[in-house]
Design a protein around this nucleic acid. Structure first.
Lengths: 178, 178
DNA sequence: AAATAGAGTGAGTAATCACTTTCAAAAGTA
DNA sequence: TACTTTTGAAAGTGATTACTCACTCTATTT
């Protein structure tokens, strides 16, 4: 990874997050990064290759966080960590998740590649374990509902339109007796 | 509204929903509609005008549905109707909502115009009324949570990745004792 | 010192984009 | 009929797009 490669990746992530993938031309990326436009294609083959590279990194971070959560023994701790996951990962790399989310809703071939991943199934399995262990009557539906809450939380955080995150967390923790 | 105008609107809605706004050229719309490309600009001024026209209709439908829900007297009925709202409106016009949703996550100027609307606030106020009337301890947070569930439901339905809607509804109705 | 290779440049390319212009056929109106 | 307006098609327009190509520069290897 040369310095210019880093500059290109940083510029692309910033612009993709701010303006969207389609509205960001390779010309703009090159200008923002302070490199020649041709260099983008030497290092990343094409515009989509650049996107690929960026998003692949994000997916691995997400997977790492989820694995950490899975290691927890106490089911209540697992659920609490799952609820806090969105805030933690979005805060760490907001631009990353802005791009990820916009891809999901772009309904374009590019989007599907990343979101058919086994990630959701892993997360759901983790919740299912916890609710089962806690003796909930209908753990499958409980975890489906929890999953909906978590993804909604994630979206709100990415778009920056949530102003009472801590209060909301406290409310949920109390509701689920975590 | 001439016949060709209808043809253009239908073609545009279909293509915007399938491929996204940015990836749909006016040329493609004209071909799909079987009219000349120039006609699009005669009738709708520009590509964004076409989008405007399409989305404006959807917003009015949504508002109408919400108003109907607001007329209900029983707070439990209000909540139940709110939960069923996504399925009802998405089933009626799936392509409409696919476009609406993709706009929201396009992070582009076009998107903001539609989603700063007072719609969300009205919906939230309706839920707040219901939870307050039912004597919930923290009606504000309860309605915020319900809003998250509803919008998550809406998104899943739009993307067609929900295969147990009725079961989920039954579960929620029981959980909230509606 | 000669050869090789990778990093980097920037002008150039064909294709596609949203949009305009021109003009003719209908359709309405007197 | 004679006119005006509306509706439509077809062939443009310049700008922008992702991407290529011929080339230079620098550093390492032979």
């Amino acid at each position: 990874m040369t310095e210019k490669q880093r500059l290109i990746l940083d510029a692309a992530l910033k612009l993709f997050a701010r303006d969207g993938y389609n509205s960001t031309s390779t010309n703009k990326i090159a200008k923002e990064a302070g490199v020649s436009e041709g260099l983008i294609f030497r290092h990343f083959r094409n515009k989509e290759g650049l996107l690929d590279f960026i998003v692949q990194q994000g997916l691995e971070i997400m997977k790492g966080e989820l694995d950490k959560t899975g290691l927890l023994k106490d089911p209540r701790a697992k659920l609490k960590a799952s609820l806090l996951l969105p805030a933690n990962i979005v805060e760490a790399k907001p631009d990353y998740w802005k791009v990820q989310v916009s891809l999901k809703y772009m309904n374009h071939e590019i989007a599907e590649k990343y979101h058919e991943s086994e990630f959701m199934e892993n997360a759901l399995a983790l919740l299912l374990d916890a609710f089962t262990e806690l003796g909930y009557k209908n753990p499958a539906l409980e975890s489906q509902l929890m999953m909906m809450i978590i993804s909604s939380l994630f979206l709100s955080l990415v778009h920056g339109d949530i102003d009472n995150h801590d209060e909301l967390m406290e409310f949920l923790v109390k509701k689920y007796k975590l």
